[in-house]
Structure formats: structure tokens, C-alpha cells
Write a protein that binds this DNA or RNA. Structure first.
Length: 259
RNA sequence: ACCAACCU
């Protein structure tokens, strides 16, 4: 049943709900962990009713149970429901729960509330810090983003990306560029952030240089490049790039052959 | 074995 639980989680992750359910039914007496796996799976699949039904039927719940339910609501924009679960079960909340609620507030444009949750936490981990930083950046609060970045105990790539984005959005391109250069290792998101930044600034050549230098592209990279051309009046190049994109809606990551 | 973070 330990293996079955792993399989249930794996099938949900791969989008095979039917197969996950079939395997779950083979478990004689599902443990809290098995129930959590199917609850989280329904949440991920967007079936909030099914998730809630499982949640209600569970006699014994763990912190992960509440977290999976809250996360399901947050991810599908049901913030009030998430808050209700959070508030009635504050005692079982752990660092994952609090971090999910920070995201919930940030997603709905309530950065100050997100910040007060963050400030009120007795324990924070890398994800907590990164979520708070990304939220400040997305909300355009460069001062908060800088403050968080400087207080960060461990700086991971998403944190660097978020602070680069915050500076670029604020119009501080030199700072963004310097931070990008200081990023210890670049992810595709790091490169995409810079393509967008250069495009906004009208630096087509530099945007193009990023595209040429990066090891692989995804739809975001090429969409950013199309936007960079478009915003700067290079309609023909924008059209050519767009037409050249292999998959326009799917998040296919494809490698390019190095020259 | 189950639950959370930047890419759409």
C-alpha cells in the first residue's frame, strides 16, 4: 500500500485520474497518507468537490490533509474557502500552510496581508521567503522585494529571478542586468526575464543576444521575443518569429542545436 | 509512501 500510494500520486501528477482511482481502490484500508494522496490529486485535477468530499469523509487528518485542501482552493482561486479552512484549523497549520496562505493573499492583490502573515510566522523556510519575494516582485513593490532579497538566508535561483524582475519592472535596468550577471546559475526563467526586460527597454539586439545565448527555449522565451519585436515596431520580425514557433500554446520545451 | 514556490 506504500507503493500504491506512490503510484496514486504519480498517476495524478501525470494526469491519469482514472488509473490513480483504480489503484486507490486496490488499497484495503487506506491510511491518512493514502487519503491525502487522493485528496491532493483531485485538487490538482481541479475537482474541488471530489477533494472536499474526501476531506469531509476523513476521520483522521494530518497537517498535509489541511494543506492539500487549502492548496487546492488557492490554486483554483477559491480564496475564501481556503481562508475558512485555515482559520478553523490554525492549530494544525505548519510552515507549508502559512506559505500557501501568503500566496493566497498575494494572488488576490492583498500584499500587505501577505506581508503580515509572513511577519507573524515563527518559522520560515526557503519556500516561504521565495514566495514572499516573488509576491512583492509581482505586485511591483521593488522596495519590499529588495528588502526580502537582502534578508534571505539562502538565495536560490527563483529568488534571483524575482529580484531581477522587480528591478526591471521598476525601470532599473542596470540593477537588473547586474543582478542577472551575479545569478550563480541561470534557469530558463532567468533568461526569459531578461528577454522581457530588454524588450521593454527597446534593446532588441540584447534581447536577441539572450535568445542566442540560452541553452534552450520554451514558449515564454519566444513569446517574449515576439513581444520585444512587436513593441518596437519590428512587425515583420515579430510575425516571422511567431510563425516559426513550433507549438504556440503548449509548454513544450525543445532544445536547439548549438552552432 | 502523502501536501507548498518563479513560466503564462
Amino acid at each position: 500500500s506504500v507503493c500504491c500510494t506512490t503510484l496514486v500520486a504519480a498517476h495524478f501528477r501525470a494526469g491519469n485520474r482514472g488509473e490513480a482511482e483504480r489503484i486507490f481502490c486496490l488499497i484495503r484500508e487506506p491510511s491518512v497518507i493514502s487519503w491525502n494522496a487522493i485528496l491532493a490529486g483531485y485538487g490538482e485535477a481541479g475537482d474541488l468537490q471530489a477533494a472536499r468530499r474526501i476531506f469531509e469523509s476523513m476521520r483522521h487528518r494530518s497537517a498535509a490533509t489541511y494543506n492539500a485542501m487549502i492548496q487546492a482552493y488557492v490554486q483554483h482561486g477559491e480564496i475564501e474557502q481556503a481562508k475558512a479552512i485555515f482559520q478553523t484549523n490554525i492549530a494544525t497549520a505548519n510552515v507549508v500552510t502559512w506559505t500557501a496562505m501568503i500566496e493566497a493573499y498575494a494572488q488576490t492583490g492583498h500584499l500587505p496581508e501577505a506581508k503580515s502573515l509572513f511577519d507573524g510566522m515563527s518559522e520560515r523556510n526557503v519556500v516561504t521567503w521565495t514566495v514572499m519575494l516573488a509576491a512583492s516582485s509581482a505586485a511591483g513593490d521593488v522596495h519590499l522585494a529588495r528588502g526580502i532579497f537582502h534578508r534571505l538566508p539562502q538565495r536560490n535561483v527563483p529568488a534571483w529571478n524575482a529580484v531581477v524582475q522587480a528591478e526591471a519592472q521598476y525601470g532599473n535596468f542596470d540593477a537588473a542586468e547586474k543582478l542577472f550577471d551575479r545569478t550563480p546559475c541561470w534557469s530558463i526563467v532567468s533568461w526569459n526575464t531578461m528577454i522581457t526586460a530588454y524588450g521593454q527597454r527597446g534593446c532588441i539586439d540584447q534581447a536577441r543576444e539572450m535568445v542566442d545565448k540560452m541553452p534552450q527555449w520554451n514558449v515564454v522565451s519566444l513569446t517574449a521575443m515576439v513581444a520585444a519585436y512587436g513593441q518596437n515596431g519590428l512587425v515583420e520580425l515579430a510575425r516571422k518569429t511567431f510563425n516559426w514557433m513550433p507549438e504556440r500554446n503548449i509548454i513544450t520545451i525543445f532544445s536547439r542545436t548549438r552552432r
